[in-house]
């Protein structure tokens, strides 16, 4: 009898703790932040009972979907403009908008090449195809063009551009060998053993900072899982994960 009551109490306890403490949040995450978000969430899920459902893609597509009622709880964009637009459309909690990371751009080569050699290749134009996230809408693509412009290679390299629909496709075009060079997010290649010695971290003074902002959407206004994630990103542990993937931390976190 005693055993049963202990069992009952503990089952009840688990049940109560799940219902009161455990929440889930569905996150729409910009493609460049994929690996880092997976690392963040894996760690956070160990520490808490919160659960996260992740969707990765281009910020533009998520923005469009959010405008049309997509059931996300948080939106991690690769830029500032889209979270602002979500907030102005009355779909997000404006106070929750913050810069979660500042992205860094890298030049990836399909063959092993030293950073110096890669810089030279880009400057001299000695390549066949360079993949770029579509600058019409992808923040990393816009930064890529700023780099080419900085090198005065914008016009003459145009015929060698192949455009990915987001930074993940720009990366995949190089990885599959179809483009010999590609502008990618540092976070995509930094921790990958196979890319050691085949990318170059582009100086961040060559392009405008890639500020990446997130916002909580209205339906998750009081979602503990979303709040826990924001707290975790601001914690030292969270910041360490971000920097290990090559992101810079915004000095003034909230805007």
């Amino acid at each position: 009898m005693k055993l049963y009551s202990i069992l009952f109490a503990s089952i009840l306890g688990i049940f109560v703790s799940f219902t009161t403490l455990a929440e889930s949040a569905h996150l729409a995450v910009a493609a460049n932040f994929r690996q880092c978000m997976l690392a963040l969430v894996t760690e956070l899920e160990k520490e808490s009972n919160h659960r996260y459902v992740l969707s990765f893609g281009s910020s533009g597509k998520f923005y469009g979907q959010i405008l049309h009622g997509a059931p996300f709880d948080m939106f991690f964009s690769a830029d500032v403009a889209k979270p602002i637009a979500v907030s102005e459309a009355g779909l997000g909690v404006s106070k929750s908008r913050f810069t979660y990371a500042i992205g860094r751009l890298a030049l990836l080569s399909s063959a092993k090449k030293s950073a110096l050699a890669l810089e030279q290749t880009l400057i001299t134009g000695a390549f066949n195809k360079v993949s770029i996230a579509n600058p019409k809408f992808a923040p990393y693509g816009i930064a890529s063009l700023e780099v080419l412009d900085h090198l005065k290679r914008l016009e003459e390299s145009k015929s060698k551009w192949v455009l990915g629909e987001n930074i993940a496709q720009a990366y995949q075009f190089v990885d599959s060998g179809n483009a010999d060079l590609g502008f990618v997010a540092l976070s995509q290649v930094m921790l990958e053993q196979k890319y050691a010695g085949s990318f170059w971290l582009i100086p961040d003074s060559w392009h405008l900072p890639i500020q990446q902002q997130a916002i909580i959407l209205n339906k998750a206004k009081n979602n503990p899982a979303a709040l826990a994630l924001i707290n975790f990103i601001h914690s030292n542990k969270g910041k360490n994960i971000l920097t290990s993937y090559g992101y810079l931390i915004a000095e003034n976190n909230s805007v």
Binding site: S58, G60, K61, Y63, G64, N134, K136, F137, E165
Partner: peptide, 8 residues
Amino acid sequence: IYDHVEAL
């Protein structure tokens, strides 16, 4: 069309 939609 896809590019237009992505670019809003």
